[in-house]
Amino acid sequence: MKPASFDYHAPATLAEALELLGDDAVESRVLAGGQSLVPMMNFRLAVPEALVDLRRIEELRYLRTGADGALEVGARTTQAELLRDPAVAAGWPLLHAGVTHVGHPQVRSRGTVCGSLAHHDPHGELPALALALGATITVAGPDGRRRIAAEDFFVSFYEVALESGEMVVEARFPAPPAGSGWSFREIARRHGDFALVGVACLVAPAETRLVVFGAAERPLLLADPGEVAAAVRPLDDLHASAEYRRQVAVQLAGEALAEARERAGG
């Protein structure tokens, strides 16, 4: 289980990184935390010609509250950094709670928030959290930057709305409106595993965002637990049957909505 050879680049600026990624002659990939990419490379399931490591790009290393109160997470920010930030725990409790379910401290120390979004494992927590919180994902490429709503970003298993030569530079999580409540639930085989199925829910005065994940090729945004059974398209795999995922999605959705409403104060 040793990776195949590749060219390694660790540019110091985003511009250089984009230039490297924009070179159509070489099949390059972004290396962020490496917590999904390197296992695939060790199994030789991924054999990129070149890696563009973000580790030296200081301009992507930030976790801050923007002018509109949104949480802005740069592409180098790790899941551990997010969890350590008291402002996140206080202002985005759903995000904080959900990310504690991502793997283990030894994985979150390197795994990035944006890497998890770009990787888009439909059983992963972060895509669901982004959708529930109405996040936007900022991507940069040869033609400049664009912002993509989470609703449009996750396409299918391990597939997102990135064009060739583009990369994610930031994820923005709007501040949950005052008076909102939240809930996060998942069933996993073991402590720290990807979810068999899970639910992230945000109840705001104006809108309810209920996200079911692990039950389709991407996280699904629904308004009501009554829709879950019909909306999900679960997988049968060796960890759980499709029927299991459907039933438990319904169950968790009901529980989560009730809890989020309670937290919202009625």
């Binding site: 069933i187 085989r189 068999l196 960890h239 759980a240 049957s241 029927e243 299991y244 039933q247 438990v248």
Partner: peptide, 8 residues
């Protein structure tokens, strides 16, 4: 006896 089998 994983969750899926028990549920079944």
């Amino acid at each position: 006896l994983g969750p899926s089998r028990v549920r079944d």
